[in-house]
């Protein structure tokens, strides 16, 4: 039983990460009806950016409590720019093209980032710097909850709450929902659809960056191909939650991972 509880707990932590990635898929699908297959690579770039910012924070001897926030914010800012550039230069020129062309372009961007990443960062895995020292928050009856798991869950939930507030309450968030509903009608009320699409990519990429850093905390091995499997799984989670549906992606991510871990966690299978 304790194994089961532990696996569900692990699953929830990992699931939070998948949910963060899945949100990017689902938001972009909502406004563009595009599966952005490069999204897993944005997550990878988030982890990479976190690696460099975290190392800088270590070298600059920033106090420990500041390192994680600085690393998170640095990676999120880097991926905001990356997301903007991907949309602007890869997808926007194809706005009138058929959907298959855009899909193939997404796969192209994904490959570009995987291989470009190996070229620039090297193919060897890097050890993610320690920006949070490990401790156990709970350790009873064979069930362990680490502070890292707690930070992952809390950060993910906070980001999702912020996203929800943004989408439901702000002018831009409402415009985003309007664009997802009907682009032509959105234009007719004065919404610049291109700006909203840009914004969607930026927000999705920021969430993926956070996921990259959070994974770096608990699984401190980052490399340019690390985005492939989580990208696929988060895509599955997004579909599971009903692609285009933001709360669905949040739940889908957790359900997918928690279910997998609860079912398979104690079997001798080493799935990533």
């Amino acid at each position: 039983m304790s194994t089961f509880v532990q696996q569900v707990l692990n699953g929830l932590a990992w699931g939070s990460v998948y949910a963060l990635i899945a949100l990017g898929y689902t938001m972009v699908y909502g406004v563009l009806k595009l599966i952005n297959f490069a999204h897993g690579e944005v997550y990878m770039m988030g982890a990479m950016a976190g690696y460099y910012v975290g190392r800088w924070a270590q070298k600059a001897e920033l106090p420990m409590p500041l390192r994680l926030p600085v690393t998170l914010l640095g990676a999120m800012a880097a991926c905001a720019v990356l997301g903007f550039l991907i949309e602007r230069f890869a997808y926007r020129p194809l706005r009138q093209a058929n959907r298959l062309s855009v899909l193939i372009t997404a796969i192209g961007v994904s490959l570009l980032l995987q291989n470009g990443g190996q070229l620039v960062f090297g193919a060897d895995p890097k050890y993610f710097p320690q920006v949070l020292s490990y401790s156990e928050v709970v350790n009873t009856g064979g069930v362990v909850l680490s502070n890292i798991q707690l930070v992952i869950m809390v950060t993910a939930v906070a980001l999702m709450a912020a996203l929800n507030l943004f989408v439901q309450k702000t002018r831009s968030g409402r415009a985003m929902r309007a664009v997802a509903n009907d682009k032509a009608a959105a234009q007719l009320v004065g919404i610049s659809v291109d700006r909203i699409i840009s914004l969607t990519f930026v927000i999705g990429s920021v969430l993926a960056a956070a996921a990259g850093v959070l994974v770096g905390l608990s699984n401190p091995k980052v490399d340019p191909l690390m985005g492939i499997m989580p990208g696929l799984k988060a895509f599955v989670a997004a579909v599971l939650g009903g692609i285009g549906n933001i709360p669905g992606a949040m739940l889908g991510g957790r359900a997918a991972r928690a279910g997998r871990d609860a079912g398979l966690g104690d079997r001798p299978l080493d799935l990533p």
């Binding site: 929902r177 509903n181 009320v189």
Partner: peptide, 16 residues
């Protein structure tokens, strides 16, 4: 109309 938005939100979008 914006299908998943409320009536009020639809009207507010008109004043975007």
């Amino acid at each position: 109309v914006f299908a998943s938005l409320s009536v009020l939100e639809n009207l507010e979008m008109g004043a975007f």
